[in-house]
Amino acid sequence: MRRYFLNIWEAISTIAKGMGVTLVHFTPARKSITIQYPDRTPVPVVETLPERSRGMLTFDPDVCDACSMCAMTCPIDCISIDRERVEGAKGFVLKRFDIDMAKCMYCGLCTEACPVKPKGLEHTREFEGATDRMEDLILEFIDEKKHRELVEKALKKAEKLKAAQNEE
């Protein structure tokens, strides 16, 4: 019998407390935390993300030395590299550098593996990388023109090195 009235009292008091918590949310003490992306934000969302965010990948062909470490480290083999030796220059020159972002899982292992400083392969904070077609997701960083530029740069570097050695 006592249990009966205790049940009623417990029900009323706990439900009232719960409803009190919900009511507090109508006061300014609890503001809504929604970010109204993409158009009603004070700054673009991309700029509010931390520096280390692992967004889309970006590649700088000018610092890359075509060591292929990134392609070997990627667990999913989404980086395809073609490289060739140029007559008269040391090392490799990139002929093709493709990253298939459709396969990429944004794990960051490739960026850690890049040995040059500053890094050739880096994550940006950009997250809006969706495209309309699957083919557009394959980022190709080296085309004919760039390849020729890189070959010329490598040859020039080799000449400078030879000139410095001849001087000694």
């Binding site: 931390p50 280390r52 944004y106």
Partner: peptide, 12 residues
């Protein structure tokens, strides 16, 4: 976590 490692769910 995003500040720490760059991702929000699959941290690696």
């Amino acid at each position: 976590m995003e500040e720490l490692c760059g991702a929000r769910l699959t941290y690696n």
